[in-house]
Nucleic acid binder design. Structure first.
Ligand SMILES: [Mn+2]
Ligand SMILES: [Mn+2]
Ligand SMILES: [Zn+2]
Ligand SMILES: [Zn+2]
Lengths: 149, 149
DNA sequence: GAGATGTTTTGAATCATTCTAAATGGAGAA
DNA sequence: TTCTCCATTTAGAATGATTCAAAACATCTC
C-alpha cells in the first residue's frame, strides 16, 4: 500500500513545519502520508511498519521524532487510553475517542460545540482549560457503520 | 502522619474485598488508609512512601498488588493523564479530572448527570459505553478554593 | 571545499509496570 | 499442638514504550 501525498497535504505539511522553522524531509513525508492514508489511530510501531513498506531504511527513532514534531506543529494529535501505547490521529476537528473493548479499535466521535460548552460549564471559577479530552470505552456493534471520520 | 482507618472505612474495605473472596491484611489496610487520608491522586510511588511511614517493611510490589486489588473491587479508580505515572482516586462519585499544568496537581470536578447524558448523546447508535472519562488540562488559579472533593 | 545547522540513525538508557519464584503467615484439620 | 493448605507478600529480574546520546548524513552558505 505505497501511498503518495496529495499536493494539498504536502503544502499543509510544508507550511506547518515552516512555522517552527523546520523542513519537509523524505522521512517526514512518508510518516505523514502513513497517517493520512489510514486514519485508524495507529501506534508508533504500526506507523513504523507501514512506513517501512515505502522506505525500508527508516528507523524507529525517526518515527518517534517525526510524530513528536507533528504533534508540536499541531498537525496531529496524540491519543492515550489508560497506559497503552500512544496512538496518533490526524483528525483536527474537535472529537472524542471510543475504544472498542472487543477489537481494540479506536473510533472518532464528533464533539459538537454545545457539548464542549456543557463540559466547560462544570468547571468552577478559576479553572481555565487549555485542553479537554473525552474518551469512551465499551462495545461498538460490529457493522463498520462508523468509519473513522 | 500516621493515620488510622475509621470503623466505617474498615468495614467498607472488608466487605468489598470479601465480595471477591479476599481478605483484609495489614498491608491492604495501610495502603487503603493512605488513599483515604490525602485524596490528592497520589502515584504508586507516593502511596509507597506514605505507607512506609506507618509500615517500614512494606514493599513496592505489594503497593502495586494492593492498588490493583482495590481497583478490581471497585474501591478506587485509576487516573491517567497522557503517559504519566498512574494515579489513584478513592472518590467514587462520577467526576472528571483537571490537571493543573503549573503544579501537576489533579483536581476532582463534579460531573452532573445532565452532562453525562449530553456526552452519551453524541454516540451514534451501536456504541455502548461502559466507561466515560473526561479530563481537563490547564491552569487553575492558585487559591485552593477547590479542595479535592 | 570547509563550516554550520538540522536531521537521521544506532544502540544504550530510563522508568513504570509486570512477572517469577521463594518466603511468610494465618486458618483449619488432624 | 503440629501440619497442611492457600493467599499474600517480598525481592529481584524482566518487559516494553519511550527517550537520550553520540556519530553519521544532508543541505546550505561562504
Ligand atoms: Mn515490530
Ligand atoms: Mn522513591
Ligand atoms: Zn481521533
Ligand atoms: Zn478523582
Amino acid at each position: 500500500m505505497i501511498q503518495n501525498i496529495s499536493e494539498h497535504d504536502r503544502e499543509n505539511l510544508q507550511e506547518s513545519l515552516a512555522k517552527s522553522g523546520q523542513k519537509v524531509t523524505p522521512q517526514r513525508e512518508v510518516v505523514f502520508s502513513v497517517l493520512l492514508a489510514k486514519r485508524d489511530h495507529p501506534t508508533v510501531d504500526e506507523v513504523f511498519h507501514r512506513a517501512r513498506e515505502t522506505m525500508p531504511g527508516l528507523s524507529l527513532a525517526t518515527v518517534y521524532n517525526c510524530l513528536q514534531t507533528f504533534v508540536g506543529c499541531g498537525l496531529i494529535r496524540q491519543v492515550n487510553h489508560e497506559r497503552e501505547s500512544t496512538r496518533y490521529c490526524p483528525n483536527l476537528a474537535p472529537h472524542a475517542h471510543f475504544r472498542d473493548a472487543a477489537t481494540g479499535r479506536v473510533h472518532d466521535i464528533e464533539l459538537p460545540p454545545e457539548v464542549i460548552q456543557s463540559l466547560r460549564s462544570i468547571l468552577p471559577p478559576g479553572f481555565d482549560p487549555e485542553a479537554i479530552e473525552v474518551s469512551f470505552h465499551g462495545r461498538a456493534l460490529a457493522g463498520d457503520a462508523h468509519p473513522t471520520l
